[in-house]
Design a protein around this nucleic acid. Sequence first.
DNA 1: GCCGTTTTCGGCCCGACTGTTTTCAGTCG
Length: 600
Amino acid sequence: MITRDQIATILEEIALLLELKGENPFKIRAYRTGAEVVQTHSEDLLALAGEEDLKPLEAVKGIGSALAKKFHELVTTGKLAFYDDLKAEFPETIFELFEIQGLGPKKVKALYEELGIDSAASLKTACEKGEVAGLSGFGQKTEKKILEAIAFQEANADQFRMGHVAPQVEEIRDALKAHPQTTRVEVAGSYRRGKETVHDLDFLVATPKPKEIMDFFVSQPFVESVINHGSTKSSIRLEDGLQCDLRAVSPEEYPCALVYFTGSKEHNIALRSLALKQGYSLNEYSLSPAEPKSPKTKTTSQASNVTPKKKPPAIHEEADVYKALGLDYIEPELRENAGEIEAAANHSLPRLVETGNLHGTFHNHTTASDGQNSLREMADAAMELGLEYLGIADHSKSSFQANGLDEKRLLKQVAEIRKLNDEFGKKFRIFAGTECDILKDGTLDFDEATLAQLDYSVASVHSSFTLGEAAMTKRIIKAIESPYITMLGHLTGRLLLKREPYAVDIPAVIDAAAATGTIIELNASPWRLDMDWRWWRLAAEKGVRCSINPDAHRTAALQFLYLGVKSARKGWLTKNDVINCLPLSKIETELQRKRASASK
DNA sequence: GCCGTTTTCGGCCCGACTGTTTTCAGTCG
């Protein structure tokens, strides 16, 4: 049975191929709209498409008679002749060219028709030979930019975004857990540590029958190919190229193995040297008495510091490993050898924020701009997640591409929100806001009189990414100096594995946020996770508060909050650092704090 | 290809930026 996502992918590919053929851009847009609709429409479109009478399907906005017929063909036969014919006209690898930043349909078409370039590899070769610069419409700079974009892609080729592998992690973990011979299962490695991107997945199981688990693992339906198949260790590749390693250990070995395979490498090295100082040897299987050093190596000062061999305490859990070394339990997200071991030794580790601490969230979109669900649908979804409040922040008028709201439409939305809030009573609240564009010179897309009518506002950069660092920093700081800008959205504009962050002096922005009382967003979109976790300790030290925001453009995307929480934890944040851990009864005062103090 | 009609064809989202041009096409948000 074909899925919604598969149909959407087919429609997207049709759109790309039609662009290559120079088709009517509005026809192309219709296919893209169709892809959106099939993914997000609340009715069961696949069921409607299976019917003989397609009238109900055609009644759906964005679907006309042509698309309805194609859906019907896909659902009933699993194929689409129109798509197959179209695809047959071009090599499969042509899609790679669309992934390269700076290349759109026109340039891809020229490259394909003039030079026969049909893959990223052949494009790279042509650029290196200087052939591309000679094409009409291309030049030296374009050629250089293409090479840079290809290099960026190559550098990230084996990397995957945490948020995008999460469903696969769940599937694999569930499959392993369901096996009767596994007593414990966990995903380890950088995924468990909450890294924003990972290059593979490491699973660990405790089992008395490792061989049986290995045979089971390599024969699962999610396996695209088997890389290694041993008796305690196997590696497979998933369809999207992601490598997954599985290690099987005995239940006794499991706690030490989990520490070892969670890493980081630097954290493990520090742990092992700490163990050695205490007379233990720590490896991937056990914590054991350290063997006395041989006379040859005894001359080093470190070896002479080793205390006599002693019997380690019993280890049942991962926490016991840390306890045996005189440490508090260190959460996986903190294991980067960035001071966590010292903090664990003197009992000063932070109590990290948890998803369950969140009472609400800000920065979400609706159909008013480029979101796919209505105000009410977004509110209902937030309530289902157990949240008490939801901040709406649709795009402002300068974001034309996102159907940004002008003052009139914004105030109309505010009125709608107030009306819905009357209906919700005390149990739930929508906060009316905006994602206000920061224009090139740092001025805001709305004047303060307009912003003052909102409950809060997020300021974000969506244009002129190529300003130099000094100008960009000045621009952002100017924007957040407005008393009506409650929080700063996606600080660096990065798109993980796709677009580098723009140049900006992050410590200077953090200082300005501290000085002005501006909250900084941790944008929890799987593409962004921006501001990066590496900066949050500094921000928190300076007294800057964080808001974990999913930047949801559809109800399902509210779930991305958990990614933001993982990143916040990796940045050592506690619930006191995160404003959306405040209950509804207290959040409003917090939103008003900045403008209230400015008016004093 | 969809929509909405002044019911059967015309309109469909705008502007900045870049690099190529020598007045603008292509890409991006």
